[in-house]
Simulated assay, not measured.
Amino acid sequence: MTHPREAAQGLTPFADATGRDADCFDVAVLVEHELTGTAARRIVDMYQMKSEPPRYHVVRPLGEGADRNTEVRAEAEQLVQKSLERLESLRARTSGTVSEQGAIDALSSIIDATHSQEVVVVTRRHRLDALLHRDWASQVRAHFELPIVHLVDR
């Protein structure tokens, strides 16, 4: 049976009776921009030695109150698709979605739907956000009790 949140986000159900897929190590990947080839390689390299093959769940939040016109959504969907293609070119198993939610809520939905065991937050360098401790990585660390990797892409 497909979980309603999974269906709404275009995710397929992976979980067994215990709540997670016994055949893989699920990683939620929160992105604010398209993954570069270097970022995709770094993500895949981090998890290549896991005993279970990793599966990456890419999410791009549009944000609460964001302009959600069709052009903005289309750009976000293209960003996710390109990111998935980069990961898949490295033989990674993937899923992806664009969320209408803010970053924390979108990530929480993905973690719940996929039973992700770790989180990778991929951002560009933001000097002002880092100084104010309001960047995504800091927010994610404050809200989740999972291992968090912050990958700063250029």
Rank of each mutant, 00 (worst) to 15 (best):
D45I: 10
L128T: 05
Q48M: 11
T94W: 13
I111F: 07
R42M: 14
A40P: 04
K82R: 14
I110V: 11
G10W: 04
A66E: 02
L62Y: 01
L146M: 09
T94M: 12
I110L: 13
E32M: 02
R127K: 14
L146T: 00
G10T: 04
D23F: 08
N69F: 11
P4V: 04
D112M: 11
E34T: 09
G37C: 06
A106N: 02
C24I: 15
D16F: 06
D105E: 15
Q9P: 06
E118G: 10
L132P: 08
Q81I: 09
A17I: 15
Q117N: 09
E32W: 01
R124G: 13
Q48P: 02
V44A: 11
I104W: 08
R42F: 11
A142D: 11
E100G: 09
S99D: 07
E85T: 02
T94K: 09
S116T: 04
R68Q: 14
R93P: 06
H126D: 11
S99M: 06
T36V: 04
Y47L: 04
T123W: 01
E52G: 10
F14Y: 14
R125W: 13
V152I: 12
I43V: 06
M46R: 02
R141C: 14
R86G: 08
D67Q: 10
P53Y: 05
H33W: 05
A8P: 04
A66N: 02
M1Y: 10
I148T: 05
E118K: 09
